[in-house]
């Protein structure tokens, strides 16, 4: 897959408008910026549009936002196409983004991808025939310490291997929501097998209330 993938005209809705609730939200974002600088709100607005519209941004929404912010349409499209987090074509209801940047790759992201292939039958960039699942390869999502990882919709699933990835995907297929976060039992990014330093430190006993 190279270049920007924009949905073909037959998939594009003719018009787009924020729901009343989202319009309020959009106005709140615009109000954060000084007069004449409303264009700074383009990213949150695109995000709102994407959430409202089945996790992808149609061209109608890009025109709608351009008009709302009084910027040229092409400038909104530039932003929307620059960031991989905006989808410009329909994606599955279950949107799986697998990080394959170097740290994750070294820690076994190939295994995560092969699990996707095995359990969903999808290669990166593909959407299942029923439109339920989309798997894509993405660059670093900033969770290297818990590599390898994938992002499912808004949640991170970390410290994966082939088995745990399969488990998560099967659960999603059944319509369940597995617990996000590290899948190998550790707490957030603490060392696997428990703390190795400050083992005797007792915050409650510490005078001065140091929160560390």
């Amino acid at each position: 897959m190279s270049g920007v993938h924009i949905a073909p005209p037959e998939l594009q809705p003719a018009s787009f408008a924020f729901t009343a609730e989202n319009l309020e939200l959009a106005k709140a974002h615009i109000a954060k910026y000084p007069a004449g600088r409303q264009r700074s709100a383009v990213m949150p607005l695109l995000d709102i549009a994407q959430r409202q519209h089945d996790n992808w941004v149609p061209q109608a929404a890009i025109r709608y936002i351009a008009e709302m912010l009084d910027v040229p349409v092409i400038k909104v499209l530039e932003v929307a196409s620059f960031y991989t987090m905006y989808n410009l074509a329909p994606v599955g209801k279950h949107f799986v983004q697998v990080c394959t940047t170097t740290p994750c790759w070294l820690a076994g992201s190939d295994k995560v991808l092969s699990a996707c292939k095995k359990h969903l039958g999808l290669n990166p960039g593909e959407t299942s025939a029923d439109g339920q699942f989309t798997v894509i390869e993405v660059e670093c999502l900033g969770a290297c310490v818990n590599a390898p990882m994938l992002q499912y919709n808004d949640d991170f699933f970390e410290d994966l291997d082939e088995e745990s990835t399969g488990r998560i995907l099967e659960a999603l297929k059944r319509g369940e929501m597995p617990k996000p976060g590290p899948q190998n039992g550790r707490l957030s990014s603490e060392p696997l097998g428990g703390a190795t330093t400050l083992t005797t430190f007792n915050p409650a006993a510490s005078a001065g209330g140091n929160d560390d």
């Binding site: 270049g3 040229p72 092409i74 499209l77 620059f82």
Partner: peptide, 17 residues
């Protein structure tokens, strides 16, 4: 302002809307 660059990095392309 009708010309723009969509995409990023190697995939950046100049186009009109």
């Amino acid at each position: 302002p009708e010309l723009g660059a969509i995409g990023r990095g190697e995939d950046m392309q100049i186009t009109t809307y």
